[in-house]
Design a protein around this nucleic acid. Structure first.
Length: 571
RNA sequence: CCGGCUGUAGCGCAGCUUGGUAGCGCGCUUGCUUCGGGAGCAAGAGGCCCCGGGUUCAAAUCCCGGCAGCCGGACCA
């Protein structure tokens, strides 16, 4: 490709709307342009990267035995009503009506459609296992799109769905996808980590997320350097060894504590560590209010709470709701004397001795609070509620845990029969008995990978593409107006092209500095500079964007040399 | 959804306090020079100053109402 014929609008200055480096560079390097919040056009350069990523995914999915299909974006409401998600999805789903006033949505995901497809066509265990995938645009009306393609409202996703006759089959299908994902992200050249994940709204049991390590990541992941444990903080557990206390239990006492509203206030007022405080949080799950108890030094993991309550919409109660229910303002709540309300407590709370908590009365707290004596919690509602913190001990090996940021680029789930049962997708087993299909689903954020890759591979000059997803393998920069320079540049360009190397020839009538800077910005891995100066010595200059290594190669050897270099990095 | 900030040329911004000829840098066009890390000189093109209403002789500027974008938050009691 010659640059004079390639639509590549690069920007010198950073658009103000872009905050993180990948977003800035995608705009500056001419990969994308914004149409609306969270909605982007992919320009030719961005398209080339997108296609590279898609093709790697395609190859590995096919290798793992999945078959490609393409399902509709426009989906009838009936299907979603059948699975029950027409309501559950809420405002996340973009909805519309056709001219006959029938409801439709633009697919945020495709479990319903694929289940519908398969229930019509698969009747026998002999047709299983089956794994179908597609690379498709999804639309989700995100609360707040941000960071360019990282969290956009329209994005491209690879989604695969497996169907098996039994649990063992699902386990195998799941493992195949897990392995395929590992290969995919390795080939793309990302530094990533697979972590245990909460399965969230999609449902199902076991699940792993593939996280690209980056400080700008929206997720926090917890991992252990000593063993293999790694989990999303939403799910992560840690060990806190707290011996049973041996303090003498003192008598419960109500204390006047004007203006002591926060844990910090309490620590100061009572001169006790935050670990002695019983933080009492009121939540609303659906329409019922519940209480969560956690130590003052800990924080509630709402995902764990939500799972325990088996509810989707769990939120902190508002100040007004708290005041109405407890006749005490936020800051003075406590579990003592509460009736007719479910209490969920972290086990560490139950070990506190002579602790402090609110008295459900403005400006009063209780001291010398002893769980079990002064209030009780049902055994099944004493569950781990904590958010794991850095330096907590690993639940497997007791070594200190670390916390890092990650960008979720892949997620694999074991769905089980959630959708097949809801939508009556069944097959006849060996005994002629009707059984629901056992499903798994597996997603990769294709467009998000572009952003994630740039987050990991950039410097002050621009993007540094890993060879397998680089939009071009090589950029040739002729310097000066010398006839000989253009002749050699043209020749090298043609020869490399014939070898199957993807070459960009910067044939613009621009000054060298402009060409160098654009080459750095768009991040082509190999730069070939052909100038009159070098040609006099029969030399062409090669520079590698990643390492910065620079060397001179004889004119007659340049094509072989470059070909070898590119191919060695493509494996 | 809540809070903050911002909407002026393709991009980055100034002008708004104190109402009166719409500006700067980059980019773009043309010419000449230049040509190994974002060149110089000269001449140009390009604006519904986010939208609607109001005040005023007069509004980018003041007032009211929208809309859009960005950032933070949407849990710590």
């Amino acid at each position: 490709m010659k640059m004079t014929q390639f639509y590549l609008p690069t920007l010198k200055e950073n658009p103000t709307e872009a905050e993180i480096v990948s977003h800035q560079l995608m705009l500056r390097a001419g990969l994308i342009r914004k149409l609306s919040a969270g909605i982007y056009t992919y320009l030719p350069l961005g398209m080339r990267v997108l296609r590279k990523i898609e093709n790697i995914i395609r190859e590995e999915m096919t290798r793992a035995g999945a078959q490609e299909v393409l399902m509709p974006s426009l989906q009838p409401a009936e299907l979603w009503q059948e699975s029950g998600r027409w309501e559950i999805m809420g405002p996340l789903m973009a909805r519309l009506q056709d001219r006959k006033c029938h409801d439709y949505c633009i697919g945020p995901t495709h479990e319903e459609v694929v289940t519908d497809l398969v229930r019509h066509e698969v009747n026998s265990y002999k047709q299983l296992p089956l794994n179908l995938f597609q690379i498709q645009t999804k639309v989700r009306d995100e609360i707040r799109p941000r960071f360019g393609v990282m969290r956009s409202r329209e994005f491209i996703m690879k989604d695969a769905y497996s169907f098996d006759k039994d649990q063992e089959g699902l386990d195998l299908s799941y493992q195949k996808m897990y392995d395929a994902y590992t290969r995919i992200f390795q080939r793309i050249g990302l530094r990533f980590r697979a972590v245990e994940a909460d399965s969230g709204a999609i449902g199902g049991s076991s699940s792993h997320e593939f996280m690209v390590l980056a400080d700008s990541g929206e997720d926090a992941i917890v991992f252990c350097d000593n063993c293999q444990y790694a989990a999303n903080v939403e799910r992560a557990e840690s060990m806190v060894s707290l011996e049973d206390g041996c303090e003498e239990l003192k008598e419960l006492a109500k204390v006047s504590t004007p203006d002591v509203k926060t844990i910090d206030n309490m620590v100061e007022f009572f001169n006790l560590p935050a670990g002695k405080m019983i933080k009492t949080l009121a939540y609303v799950a659906g329409k019922t209010m519940i209480i969560a108890l956690i130590r003052g030094c800990d924080e509630v993991n709402e995902v764990k709470l939500r799972n325990q309550l088996n509810a989707v919409d769990v939120r902190l109660a508002s100040d007004e709701e708290v005041l109405e229910r407890f006749s005490a303002p936020v800051g003075f709540l406590g579990p003592i004397g509460l009736k007719d309300i479910r209490i969920i407590a972290d086990p560490l709370v139950m070990k506190i001795q002579n602790g402090v908590t609110g008295a459900n009365q403005m400006d009063y707290h209780y001291r010398h609070v002893n769980p079990g004596r002064d209030f009780t919690v049902r055994e099944e509602d004493i569950i781990d509620l904590r958010i794991v913190k850095e330096e907590d001990s690993c639940i497997h090996c007791n070594e200190p845990l670390k916390v890092a940021r990650g960008i979720e680029v892949g997620h694999v789930f074991k769905l089980g029969t959630k959708y097949s049962e809801a939508m009556n997708a069944t097959f006849l087993d060996e005994n002629g008995k009707e059984q629901p299909l056992i499903m798994g689903c597996y997603g990769i954020g294709v467009t998000r990978i572009i952003g994630a890759a740039i987050e990991q591979n950039n410097d002050e000059h621009g993007i540094i593409w890993p060879m397998p997803i680089a939009p071009f393998h090589v950029v040739i920069i002729p310097i000066g107006k010398d006839e000989e320079v253009s002749r050699v540049a043209e020749q090298v360009y043609t020869d490399l092209d014939n070898r199957g190397i993807e070459v960009l020839l910067d044939d613009r009538n621009e000054r060298p500095g402009v060409k160098f800077n654009d080459a750095d910005l768009i991040g082509v891995p190999v730069r070939v500079v052909i100038g009159g100066r070098g040609l006099k010595e029969n030399r062409i200059e090669v520079k590698f964007r990643g390492t910065g290594d620079e060397l001179k190669v004889a004119v007659e050897e340049i094509v072989d040399f470059i070909t070898d270099q590119v191919e060695s990095q493509l494996v």
